[in-house]
Design a binder for these strands. Structure first.
Lengths: 347, 347
DNA sequence: TTGAAAGCGCTAACAT
DNA sequence: ATGTTAGCGCTTTCAA
């Protein structure tokens, strides 16, 4: 067993010496589409294995200006949807042979984080549930760093937004309520200044009016459980109580079910139908059996990473918006699945 | 407004030219403890601001052999505890001026991920809910890369494990059940081959026997909700049903409450007391009000990052194990908080 | 205190 | 197909 003398980093030189070839031969052996003879490649690989050598990505990046690093900025992960989204995104990035440098957005220090990521020369930037200041947008553009936004539609140039079709799915929920005979239909908004919350409200209203119904009341729950508790109390305290509530995410919908049962003694779905958004794990739990919208996270992250790969090679302009078709998942909180022969929307 | 001619990356040379100083002056202006006159520093800073310059971390790392990159390997984030842990860990890493390169462990490709991180010359490696093969352990040691394990105690050299005091907290739960008058007390294990699940069982048994009680039955729920459902059905189907179950995490405990109520029509805590571990958000929800153990995630990640910083400067041997004191959070699932004057354990 | 020069580990253009 | 040479952008001795 040949050993390395100076403990510490093993370099291409060490491998070259051991294999009896030049440094460039070693480099070529580790470069996918390079001219190396079967023979030298074998020698290099054996030597590399022996020494436990692996090219230094930093040094490599310095010459290739490809780091295989993707910067990811996300929010707090208390919301399980964000957690799952981040997990799948990271997995997809690593499946594509890259690595994710992840930051949690401070909201206040968002620009600083992006600047930091840029100093690592990330090949691309992915923003999940986060915005981009126009200042940073131009810095990314100048550095030729493609930016992909997931789950937020950003009105900024040179950025591709990947979201599910919030309007379509929300309209489907609205129509579901009406078909189930509900008439006092309420909406619980997420964070009011996000595109997702606005799109969901717009779609929901459209779905209602398509069947001749109209919104009875609404409140803001800020996408959090606590906010959902407050908003649910507000809605249900009304003198004319709603008989159906569409919450802009599951966290608020679960809170709404809790409040309806515990604080108001209501039966779900008898007295009150509730629907959410995200199809989180808890939506399927026996206690809730919550109707919800599956955003197709795998589809979203796949699109996002495809956009990254395209942008990295093309270096050109990018598509502005990608819409992922969601799926409505009906459970007992809206009276259970509809009859089997009724067609689902979406593909 | 002076602008940069060649769009693309701005280098120290550009700044030097604009500021009328040398490259090294620029470098020194960006190096905390370096000899630069107030005057040149000011000139450099102004020029850098104007150009939007920021030192290239990759190039810098190549000479300093400090990347300010921390490799993080974690598991699936379906478990909200892992999600919160990861979030806080990343936040703590970025507060320390470093960046986290995050991978989701494939279990099968764990070694490959670590090797990949090593090729980025990460300053340290953090494993959360993950193991380390002895092969990789020696590669880390050879490269002088410190390894910190969170939430797993690993029997490997040169590694520091940060966990909460699982045994202490679990013993407290055991004693709580006995004090509340329960005698048919069961344990629901997590993944059987993890140190956390084993330590919790050991502590729980110890707590019981300390008050003269003994374990009635046990099952394995693998730390998942589905697993918890199955294990709860198993335990509650017994001819002599348990009247208290300690689940090794909240996900399983919530599942147990659901099963007890929905499938067996039991009252919690009347017919069955349930306690969990992690003090996840859902444990506080009105439907569950679950007694649980708060592992003090902020304390865990703070210790972990302190260990990183210490290891990076010292390059010496490290402490083997850090125990974080947890807190018992009593809620209605075990009959509500005890009287106010009864002392809590831990600090 | 500052600038000039060397080099971190690698890849790529050029010769062979 | 292989080796030689010249950098990638930075820090850091070494002189001045």
């Amino acid at each position: 067993m040949t050993e390395q003398s100076g403990s510490g980093r093993i370099t291409a030189n060490d491998v070259a010496r051991l294999a009896g070839v030049s440094r460039s031969a070693v480099s070529r052996a580790f470069t996918p589409g390079a001219y190396v003879s079967r023979d030298t490649r074998a020698k290099v690989e054996r030597a590399a294995d022996l020494l436990g050598y692996r090219p230094d990505m930093l040094a490599r990046s310095l010459t290739t200006s490809r780091t295989f690093l993707v910067g990811v900025i996300t929010t707090h992960l208390d919301n399980p949807f964000y957690a799952t989204l981040l997990q799948r995104l990271i997995e997809e990035i690593q499946r594509a042979g890259m690595a994710a440098v992840t930051f949690i957005a401070d909201e206040t220090s968002n620009d600083e984080r992006i600047s930091q990521l840029l100093s690592y020369r990330v090949d691309a930037l992915v923003l999940t549930n986060t915005s981009l200041s126009s200042k940073m947008s131009v810095r990314c553009a100048r550095g030729d760093t493609p930016v992909i936004a997931i789950n937020r539609y950003l009105e900024v140039d040179n950025i591709v937004s990947v979201t599910c079709d919030n309007e379509l799915a929300s309209a489907a929920i609205g129509k579901l309520f009406v078909k189930k005979g509900r008439r006092r239909i309420a909406y619980m908004a997420g964070e009011p200044d996000t595109s997702s919350s606005r799109d969901r409200e717009r779609g929901f209203r459209a779905g209602l009016s398509e069947l001749g119904a109209t919104l009875h009341s609404s409140a803001v729950g800020n996408y959090s459980h606590d906010g959902g508790v407050r908003a649910a109390r507000e809605l249900l305290s009304s003198s004319v109580r709603p008989d159906a509530i569409f919450c802009a995410n599951d966290l608020m919908a679960l809170a709404t079910v809790d409040v309806a049962r515990k604080d108001f003694g209501l039966d779900v779905p008898g007295d009150l139908m509730v629907a959410g958004f995200d199809n989180s794990d808890a939506a399927a739990w026996a206690t809730y059996r919550l109707t919800s919208v599956d955003q197709n996270i795998p589809g979203m992250v796949r699109s996002a990473v495809e956009e990254i790969e395209a942008a990295v090679v093309e270096r050109g302009r990018m598509r502005r918006r990608v819409l992922i078709p969601p799926t409505l998942v009906e459970r007992e909180s809206t009276g259970g699945p509809k009859s089997i022969d009724e067609p689902k929307y979406g593909s």
